[in-house]
Design a protein around this nucleic acid. Structure first.
Lengths: 160, 160
DNA sequence: GCTGAAAAATGATAGAA
DNA sequence: TTCTATCATTTTTCAGC
């Protein structure tokens, strides 16, 4: 986990900017934050080393790579014990359709966000990769009509 | 949306690399894909213009910015019609705790992925920002024990 | 569509405040 | 710490293959 570090206004500006465009140059980043480029480099290194920033990724349009259909799969497993849960998690993560896997409280143990080619692909995923497994008790499929990303991740009360 | 473009093996290599590290330099990217740096620049511009890559973001550790608790909120709204749904969506997206909002098929209309400061913050979000609204019929709260990201987004059958 | 060299932009460094 | 100035590196552009 991240070491607890104090983040000031400048750090927050950098994080906000990089959250909207991870490929922004150091130069532009410094300009936006109102600091020198060298200072900016130092700050970024510090944020990285402290574990505040943990990696980055380009967003890829799923439909552009042949996976236009998205769904949430709610899964109940039984018995809900680690020796059975760990292989289940590994299996789900091994599926190329898996985008995110969440272990939740509540009646449904897991939620899987998947991007699939079409309904047939989704059916295969549910029948052959999930319900076929002994530990899987139930799978509920929810298609995603639309999704939105939230705003920048900021501590409540931080400056704009 | 993305124009339908043909993606070859080299494009897929670039996308995979950038999905793991959006700040990777053009030089390293070209080396991994086995192409000249200039070709790599061209390819990236093409992928961007075609809408295959739609933005990028650094991942920020929620606990490092004071929001260590994550949850999924399942919400039912009524009546489920656009004049009421649109304001609801705007309101949810206006909350700084909102990371993702999904509009789903099934008994629950929306799923909200939130990062919060603590249980009190979560309670406030549910009571004051969601159930307080007329169109919200029900909110189920599911804490996130743990989450995993899926592998790289690849079209099925693509080369490794 | 790919390459390689020139031009432009960028990142890293050191030294001073 | 932060900034300014310098320099090595990198990215982009473009003519030719």
């Amino acid at each position: 986990m991240a070491a607890q570090v104090e983040l000031d206004v400048v750090d927050m500006r950098l994080l906000r900017a990089l959250q909207d465009d991870a490929r922004m140059t150091n130069r532009e980043l410094a300009a936006r934050a109102g600091i020198a480029t060298s200072t900016c480099s130092d700050r970024l290194a510090r944020l990285r080393d402290a574990g505040v920033m943990c990696g980055s990724a380009v967003r890829i349009e799923p439909s552009a790579v042949g996976r236009p259909l998205e769904a949430m799969l709610a899964v109940r497993v039984h018995p809900h014990r680690r020796p059975l849960v760990d292989p289940f998690v590994r299996h789900v993560l091994a599926q190329p359709e898996t985008r995110h896997l969440y272990h939740l409280t509540g009646p449904d143990d897991f939620l899987i966000h998947v991007t699939v080619v079409d309904a047939a692909d989704l059916q295969r995923l549910v029948l052959d990769e999930l319900t076929a497994r002994d530990e899987v008790v139930m799978v509920h499929t929810h298609l995603i009509f639309h999704q939105w990303r939230g705003g920048p991740l900021l501590p409540p009360g931080a400056e704009g």
